[in-house]
Design a protein around this nucleic acid. Structure first.
Lengths: 196, 196
DNA sequence: ACCTGAACACCGTTCAAGT
DNA sequence: ACCTGAACACCGTTCAAGT
């Protein structure tokens, strides 16, 4: 006599994401997820290989959500590249502040089993590539996209990890970084013109 | 009859650092540390408040070691600011590759009890401030230092977390970033001269 | 076919008891 | 004064037993 399904992979990932946001990665226990979806912990292993697999699925959901936010931020007709970079950076920081634990997961060094699929990462970073290409040109788009991502991620990581306890205004430092980044990524062209 | 001390806080932090490097943060258990110093786990609580306190002490040791590497890298007489930034960035990346788990700890978002003292962070980042001031001027030194740190940390984090699976050469991207960063941080002056 | 209780090996932490 | 075994409340994971 087959027993009826009491949950689904979708529901598990959805509840796990909510638990991550509310209680952090340490709070994301198999017991907590099982409780939220209404089964016992061992039953989760019918849908996910183990906790690392669940973390990978949650991370992919976070990347998708972030990618949508970034896409929306730069999908304004007639947006100048420098303005687009500002919008992109602000959307990223807002996402990181709203969902710090989820955002941390994207760049966290976890076992390969807990890492998202490369294709999901590619899709989530499409907006960054578009802005990078607009600023630095198609030839340097990949390097420029990585520089934008590295800086924005690093900044927010420092901000949320408490590395800014030394004083100063985080908002001002972020704005400073965005403007300097825009200068830097368009700088190759200016330098070739002025010969400096 | 007082029992003789079988270990010390120094030895505990030293062995904990070694375990962190070899087995990662998850492998840094109270049992493993106790084993390494030759006592039982409960005895550790005579020297450290709890595991988070031990993590904070290990993090401070890592920050000190990194700070020494960075100081050495930029302590070359007559070093031009742009060359100093290259040396600084290369030293940071080399440290991160040599001790990935330790480096991750510096920027990891952990409970306040597991975070190092602000004074230790200040001392460890002295070299970055000096290079930042040389590049961007005293007025923007704080923001510039944060931009350098954010980018370098973010880059290495992405590199070691597997975010570079999309192809491309990490060495080339890092060099690209350093040069663009040097452009960016000296760009304020150039812009004020050209009026762009 | 799916779910569950029980069990196992592991955590961090506390504490009374030893010396 | 320091150290220890035992205990507690938690983990992730497995598996035989239920329906």
């Amino acid at each position: 006599m087959p027993a009826p399904q009491r949950t689904s992979l979708d529901q598990i990932v959805r509840e796990a994401s909510a638990i991550l946001d509310e209680r952090g990665l340490d709070g994301l226990t198999m017991h907590a997820v099982a409780d939220a979806v209404g089964v016992r912990a061992p039953s989760l292993y019918k849908r996910v290989r183990d906790r690392n697999h669940l973390i990978a699925l949650v991370t992919e959901a976070v990347v998708d959500a972030l990618g949508e936010d970034l896409d929306r931020a730069v999908s304004v007709p007639g947006l100048a590249p420098r303005t687009a970079l500002r919008a992109l950076a602000d959307a990223f920081r807002a996402f990181a502040h709203a969902r710090p634990a989820g955002c941390a997961l994207i760049f966290m060094r976890l076992p390969p089993a807990a890492r998202p699929e490369a294709e999901v990462l590619r899709r989530g970073s499409a907006a960054v590539f578009r802005v990078a290409a607009a600023l630095a040109g198609e030839r340097d788009a990949l390097e420029a996209a990585r520089m934008i991502t590295a800086w924005a991620h690093g900044f927010v990581d420092m901000e949320l990890s408490g590395a800014f306890r030394l004083g100063g205004d985080a908002d001002r430092a972020y704005r400073y970084g965005i403007d300097r980044l825009a200068d830097a990524l368009t700088g190759g062209l200016r330098e070739s013109l002025t010969g400096s």
